[in-house]
Design a protein around this nucleic acid. Structure first.
Lengths: 177, 177
DNA sequence: ATTCTTAAGTTCCCTCAGGGAACTCGGCTA
DNA sequence: TAGCCGAGTTCCCTGAGGGAACTTAAGAAT
């Protein structure tokens, strides 16, 4: 898996994917955020190889997503907890879960519900505009180069087609978006 | 990578991750949704091995996330477009991007901006409750078993700790959530 | 009419990451 | 003092991914 190259790309999705784009990391974060925080519990719950689990956990600690903490002194035992950076991955998990629910839930319905304690209802998470609160979709958003974007050959930022709309009209190819 | 086992697990995150938990798939979807839809363009833009790109694309088509379509007749040329199922992965990408922006953007700022055409402003996507519109966080939500959840030994659904809160009080271990 | 080029993949070889299971090591506990 | 967690390491083996060359089909160039 090409790790380092991806992290260098000037795209936040690529940077996030470099860490999170791995079959296990999302599930580890799901577990840790829902209270499965010990090595053995994670290994059993996920069915992951202990070797790979150890590697993932130390990478996540290195990245500041998890912290390894002692939770009891005698005998000394450590577990893993999410940092704020780790907790902020929750929206990613919610989005993945929502998508999985919509497209893979059987006739019985989704395997889990998310209850919003604020309003007390079982909720479905939507990706909303921070300003007006409307749902964001492929159709009602456009991607523009940001301040931190590098320009130059081969360094796409995000959405050259849509960025191009700002200055010159596109070619004849159908616009997906 | 253990593919099939994960898809069987009664957890929508696991199901979604089985397809999406791969360093390349997220980036392919980003590209396709932003207008990079042809094989060679994808290969060059991503720097992905052509072999792996072919494998990913055919998997995505198989799953109904993309469709392979002829976009010109002479000479016959095909490209890939997102289906509704594919477009609905957009919130996942937004969440990944937002997280990457927050934690990996340099001093110059994020590499890209998302403009919401509805309100005309550059936006930051938030994961909100569909009922009340409030942001969903680890702290203000709880996970409960859903109708489609399997019960039995070894089949965690999502959040046994939080689910357990409904009936019996927890052990002495600190609750991460 | 032959050669060039482009698009869209395949094929081949090779390395390295992941799976599985056994081993380690410190520190209780019976 | 033998056993038993919890938390990893180590070992071997297979298979997925990288890289680069090859293929096929259909214009376009000369």
């Amino acid at each position: 898996m090409t790790r380092t190259p991806l992290a260098d790309v000037a795209c936040s999705i690529a940077r996030a994917t470099d860490l999170f784009g791995d079959a296990w990391t999302a599930l580890i974060m799901r577990d840790v955020l829902t209270g499965v925080t010990r090595f053995d519990d994670l290994a059993h719950d996920l069915g992951i190889s202990r070797k790979v689990l150890a590697a993932r956990l130390s990478r996540l600690v290195e990245e500041g997503v998890l912290v390894r903490e002692r939770y009891q002194e005698r005998p000394p035992r450590e577990h893993y907890r999410a940092t704020p950076k780790g907790e902020e991955l929750y929206p990613v998990l919610l989005a993945l879960m929502e998508w999985g629910d919509r497209w893979y839930a059987g006739p019985a319905g989704p395997p889990a519900r998310i209850r919003h304690l604020g309003c007390g209802l079982d909720t479905t998470p939507v990706s909303a505009c921070a300003h007006c609160g409307e749902p964001l979709t492929v159709g009602n958003t456009t991607q523009l180069p940001g301040p931190g974007g590098r320009t130059g050959p081969g360094t796409r930022v995000l959405g050259p087609l849509l960025a191009a709309r700002e200055d010159t009209p596109e070619t004849g190819r159908p616009a997906t978006v």
